[in-house]
């Protein structure tokens, strides 16, 4: 069973979001997603300063046999990206909720997070599948 931390919010497309104390959101892909994809070999991240719409495909993760778009869970400006992933995409496999984080966003609407799934709803989603 995949790890689904209680303190995060989730999307149907398997991103997780954490509300940080500075008002920014940290985004990554879930443990379930990395399991499905297998060993990641490449991660494409947006440029810092880019504005992403909610559900816009603004990142890509690649395994040997698949490539998947990663969607911005909320609308906002990208303020930081995890540069380490360029050389170490495997961090997403090893530690999807920690060192494998992908971007930090300043949300247009600070309340946007509330529309996302909580851990329980996400757990149900992946159990159905």
């Amino acid at each position: 069973m995949s790890d689904v931390p209680e303190d995060l919010r989730y999307t149907r497309t398997h991103e997780w979001v954490r509300a940080d104390e500075d008002g920014l959101l940290t985004v990554g892909i879930t443990d379930h997603a990395q399991e499905q994809l297998g060993d990641l070999v490449f991660v494409e991240l947006p440029e810092v300063g880019r504005h992403c719409e909610a559900d816009e495909a603004c990142m890509v993760v690649e395994s040997v046999k698949a490539a998947s778009d990663v969607y911005s869970p909320v609308a906002g400006e990208v303020v930081e990206v995890n540069e380490v992933l360029a050389d170490s995409p495997e961090l997403i496999n090893k530690d999807p909720y920690g060192e494998g984080w992908m971007i930090r966003i300043r949300p247009d609407d600070p309340k946007a997070l509330e529309s996302l799934m909580d851990a329980e709803a996400y757990r149900e989603l992946i159990e159905e599948a």
């Binding site: 070999v41 490449f42 690649e62 395994s63 040997v64 046999k65 698949a66 490539a67």
Partner: peptide, 12 residues
């Protein structure tokens, strides 16, 4: 690097 190619990436 097959994830660049049509059989995996399709329209992208």
């Amino acid at each position: 690097l097959q994830a660049r190619e049509q059989h995996i990436r399709r329209s992208k």
